[in-house]
């Protein structure tokens, strides 16, 4: 009875899991198909291995630039967001100052405002200050993260106050307590924000689509979308391009999966 139930459960789970990864499997299979067989009846597991599709895809679009940009932009957004959010979260959690509530709710309030409200003026501002087609335009407007500030503040509040009070009695400055006591104790929350910011930066689409045109400044996501316009009917090439845009993230994810999911749940629950 129990074994019978277990088997059914595994069947359901395995079938579901298969459906979840089927798109990836099929993407890889298609990317290895010879062009001539594009319109032949499809198959799930690779039969032929036309690795030259990858070379063709890479040659026909500037994937190297897209990659460099995506990596650079995502890392900068991540570092910037984590550092700035931690700095802003600290006074909200620990210091007593005029206008504390005002600023806190002002920041939180913008969390409720969807990007669509700001996107048109933000684009106009970027255009005015001549930042179209720069990496700055992709990074700097994205560094203010009310979510990050809120997340870290909540976490800082869970750290016993006695710890930094003791340090202050010993004569430590606020900056010292922030740097040497609060931050080291907040590693899980910092990790989770790091992951959030990186995914956000890597997957962002509308903003780079709007502010970048030239391949030197465009990210992988926009590059793939453009590439699908360019080789829309040549599925093997398109899929080869898509594989190369996804695989790095999947590898990074598989390597750091444990920290990744831990961080995510910290983020979700602490809210």
């Amino acid at each position: 009875m129990k074994i019978y139930k277990k088997i059914i459960m595994h069947l359901i789970l395995a079938l579901g899991a298969f459906i979840m990864v089927l798109p990836f499997l099929w993407m890889i299979t298609t990317s290895l198909k010879p062009l001539k067989l594009t319109y032949d009846s499809p198959y799930i597991f690779p039969k032929s291995f036309e690795f030259s599709n990858y070379i063709t895809a890479w040659k026909s679009a500037d994937f190297l630039s897209f990659y460099k940009n995506s990596i650079f932009v995502s890392i900068c957004i991540t570092l910037g967001t984590v550092v700035l959010s931690a700095m802003a979260a600290y006074p909200f959690a620990r210091l007593n100052f005029t206008g504390k509530n005002f600023w806190f709710y002002a920041f939180l309030g913008t969390m409720m405002i969807p990007f669509y409200v700001e996107v048109i003026p933000l684009y106009k501002i970027i255009e005015k200050i001549g930042w179209l087609d720069t990496r700055r335009a992709l990074i700097i407007p994205r560094l203010f993260s009310p979510f990050g500030i809120f997340l870290l503040r909540q976490y800082f509040l869970t750290i016993p106050k006695e710890l930094d009070e003791a340090a202050e009695i010993d004569g430590a400055s606020k900056f010292y307590t922030f740097w040497k006591i609060i931050l080291p104790l907040s590693k899980p929350a910092l990790a989770s924000l790091t992951i959030f910011s990186f995914i956000f930066g890597w997957n962002d689409f509308l903003w780079p689509l709007l502010v970048t045109t030239r391949p030197e400044y465009t990210t992988v996501q926009v590059g793939i979308s453009n590439f699908s316009g360019k080789y829309g009917t040549l599925w093997p090439y398109l899929m080869a391009g898509t594989v190369t845009s996804i695989v790095p993230v999947i590898i990074i994810f598989l390597l750091g999966q444990k920290q990744f999911i831990e961080g995510l749940t910290v983020g979700g629950i602490k809210e």
């Binding site: 990836f24 995914i199 992988v220 898509t242």
Partner: peptide, 18 residues
């Protein structure tokens, strides 16, 4: 089950279109 979450929507869109 988790892999689709980290996949960029734009890339996922291209695959699903096919």
């Amino acid at each position: 089950y988790f892999i689709p979450v980290i996949t960029a929507t734009a890339a996922a869109g291209v695959i699903w279109k096919y």
